[in-house]
Design a protein around this nucleic acid. Structure first.
Lengths: 338, 338
DNA sequence: CAGCCTTTGACAAGCGCTTGCAAAAAATCA
DNA sequence: TGATTTTTTGCAAGCGCTTGTCAAAGGCTG
């Protein structure tokens, strides 16, 4: 590997000049800068990250934090797509990414500690957002920069984040059903402590309220068949005229679909179903799910851009909202308005 | 952060002695070693990776290579679980992991190049195995160490790998159906160029042959409903008495299940179904799929252990096979032997 | 044309750690 | 006890890069 001395020699300047020239310092004359650049090119020079980091006492890699391992969460293809997006941008900026995972909160925090103290990593991207997250506390205490994907649980205008407009997405999904004649629409969710879910629910409620229709909520995880059937039986008893569901994500939608499909009476109702995330599950369901795409890769990309852009810690935070988009498949039918 | 000088000072020795003591060099007397260790402990000392790497001209991070981005592949939860396993082990060995991804083969190779030349990464784990992989070529050319998860496409006893015994898994799955009275069993796959699939198929064939039963093969991707129905119609016409399917993975099994379920006649056949991977899809299907678990996290762990263990490149390669295990759910019924 | 300011580039120190080499200390032996 | 070996420790150089400081060179003005 060529070192900076080699390119300096070839360009006929000192290493320090070469260094400055390569980072585009205006203190070096343009001709020299070009000469150095040419030499670097010719020698196929690339700086050694370790040396660079050591000298700058910084790091060219950014840490990507996965949520604490919880099987269900973890099997969500979402994360990989976000990681892809992040990595893409990082590489193009000459950075690398490294992962922080953990089987428990403590382990995660510890791993992050190691990355900060030993790895000198100064920028993190959180792939999730949670209330009272010890990870966030640690990050803040260590004065490192971080951007979260999702809506920050608090201080949302003090920290950088990228997110979808989940409230709007909720409204749009609901409106989609309304537009097709549905009036009795149920919002199906599993865990309101997740910001995504409560936001989408808010959106749903807004849409319903606008048409002066009553909320119909159903919380259910569909963990086993028996309890699912029981829950749905009770639900339909209370709301016999429901024609559509807005399910908070497509995994949940799929589960609902399964139990619906499996009961002749319910199947006959042909309830419409709109979901979120547009992941592989939407395609795998039958009928395929109409779903609100949220573009995880894009989320990752935007997060990485923010992370790579602002280095001064005391700068104003950035927030970017990535758009969503309904992709129509076959799980929604129009009904004649009653 | 405490540096090695600090601990040296506190222990009353020179930095070099401290360094040697901390790496456990036997050239340092035991008492001093202990004194240094104690000082390090007290100061909460941890070495700076960058400095360490620079001095040793090595790297304490290992590169994890994802397959080239192909949407279907990428939405497989498998990868994240392997990564989890890898990360777990790496962290506990004081290493970090960094990701290599790419939208094309060229991009991937380029990214890996950067990691090697600029990042000084000397060890990689490939999360996939493919024939004529340019990544492998590059890795070999650069004389870096790598271990692959899956069966190496060639030279399988020259390179380290970790894998399941997919042939045996195929046999076991088939035998599971045989044991329950099935005789007309179909093997469903999508792409034989993948080692996993061809291996599992081999196992299926072995089991069938042992009972002197004929192979029944079906290649189908179930990409859209119409073509799926068509394919199955043709299939059942040719093999009207099939009672069970061995599907090469649970995503495929799920798709099959969907189209089967959706046709009253086929549904009535109540075909049994056994799948592989035991991912979230197995749980999501209805009825839930009996599936052969292959423990991706474990695969990752083992791969990481190998990667971290052998540093001399000229050492003999290691191969480890992680066991599989059938987890019974509801997609297999016993049939009375005819 | 002398004096002063500006631009340009080199020198050298240092980031935190490792390691070859040699000096000091301890242990052994005659 | 002195010589010799063995053990233990310190010195200093160096990994590849950045950057503060300063000298040299060139351009102005009066």
């Amino acid at each position: 590997m060529a070192t900076i001395k080699d390119v300096a020699a070839r360009a006929g300047v000192s290493p320090s000049t070469a260094s400055r020239a390569l980072r585009g310092s205006t203190v070096i004359s343009k001709p020299t800068r070009e000469r150095v650049a040419k030499a670097a090119q010719a020698l196929n020079y690339a700086p050694d990250f370790n040396a660079q980091n050591l000298a700058k006492n910084a790091s060219s890699t950014i840490g990507v934090v996965l949520p604490v391992d919880h099987h269900e969460i973890f099997s969500n293809p979402f994360f990989l797509e976000m990681i892809r997006g992040i990595n893409e941008i990082c590489i193009s900026h000459g950075s690398m990414t490294t992962l922080a995972t953990g089987i428990s909160s403590e382990e995660l925090v510890h791993n992050i500690d190691v990355m900060i103290t030993q790895g000198h990593i100064r920028t993190f991207i959180l792939l999730y957002s949670e209330k009272d997250d010890p990870v966030v506390k640690r990050l803040a205490a260590a004065h490192v920069q971080y951007v979260v994907i999702g809506k920050p649980a608090q201080d949302s205008n003090q920290i950088s984040y990228v997110n979808n407009d989940n409230v709007q997405a909720g409204t749009d999904a609901t409106q989609y059903l309304l537009d097709r004649g549905h009036r009795q629409i149920c919002f199906l969710y599993s865990d309101l402590s997740k910001m995504v879910q409560s936001d989408r629910m808010l959106g749903y409620q807004r849409a319903m309220m606008q048409d002066q229709l009553p909320d119909i909520l159903l919380q259910e995880r569909f963990e086993d068949h028996a309890s699912s059937v029981q829950a749905l039986t009770a639900f339909f008893a209370a709301h016999p005229t429901v024609t559509g569901f807005v399910a908070v994500d497509d995994m949940l939608a799929m589960k609902l679909q399964q139990v619906l499909h499996n009961n002749p009476v319910w199947k006959q109702r042909q309830c419409s179903l709109i979901a979120f995330n547009n992941s592989i599950f939407s395609d795998l369901a039958h009928p395929m799910l109409t779903s609100v795409a949220v573009f995880p890769q894009r989320l990752g990309e935007e997060a990485a851009k923010i992370a790579l852009a602002t280095h001064p810690t005391d700068e104003l935070p950035t927030a970017v909202i990535v758009p969503h988009q309904i992709v129509a498949r076959h799980s929604v039918r129009a009904v004649s308005a009653n």
